[in-house]
């Protein structure tokens, strides 16, 4: 990959906005929609992805030269699956309540396109340092998006953020926001807002 050198800072910040995995690239939508019924769930899922993505990117980019092209995808998947299992088991052991609420979606990080996508598009072609920065940027972008999405849904659907009561007592929660339709509506509006802001910036 004869790519122009971009600064490490740029490598990090692109994941936050310009190439935000959820809002711009629309990757990893399954966990995004499924777990963000509260801010804490979004944050926890984001952190689980942060650990898995950074660890996988580190390993993959350091062994990128010895992995034959033909078996790269299975190798990536094994590496990712290993880290996901580590996350899953440690969470079950040390954070059982959080693990219960995230349920099936921790093991499903294996098939999260954000992670495989970064291995294929970045870690397998760049050195370790850059890959770690890229992975951190992407997963921080992912985490922030999920937390914000979770916070909006929790605020409107339950009147709280991180279980902190923010709405007055007279507020009637919009039940739909913590149900699946609320995830689609909120995410759709967030993506729309992103595109709108980008379009205005270009002008």
């Amino acid at each position: 990959m004869a790519k122009k050198k971009i600064s490490l800072l740029k490598e990090f910040t692109k994941g936050l906005w310009d190439e935000n995995p959820v809002l711009v690239m629309l990757l990893g939508l399954c966990p995004t929609l499924a777990v963000t019924s509260s801010a804490i769930n979004g944050l926890a899922m984001g952190l689980a992805v942060l650990f898995t993505l950074t660890a996988s990117s580190t390993i993959i980019s350091s062994v990128r030269k010895i992995i034959p092209k033909e078996v790269r995808i299975p190798t990536f998947i094994i590496v990712i699956a290993t880290f996901v299992t580590i996350t899953d088991k440690s969470m079950a052991a040390f954070q059982p309540i959080l693990h219960k609420s995230l349920g099936a979606f921790i093991p499903l990080i294996v098939v999260n396109c954000v992670i495989l996508g970064r291995q294929e598009a970045f870690a397998s072609k760049n050195n370790v340092g850059r890959s770690i920065v890229d992975a951190l940027g992407m997963s921080v972008g992912f985490t922030i998006t999920l937390t914000v999405l979770g916070a909006i849904r929790e605020l409107l659907g339950a009147g709280t953020i991180f279980s902190l009561q923010l709405m007055p007592d007279s507020f009637v929660p919009w039940m739909v926001m913590i149900l699946p339709p609320g995830a689609f509506i909120t995410l759709g509006l967030m993506i729309g807002a992103t595109n709108w802001i980008n379009a205005r910036r270009e002008r």
Partner: peptide
């Protein structure tokens, strides 16, 4: 449908 899902009791 939105109202029904949001405020099922009301």
């Amino acid at each position: 449908a939105f109202l029904q899902a949001s405020f099922p009791v009301r």
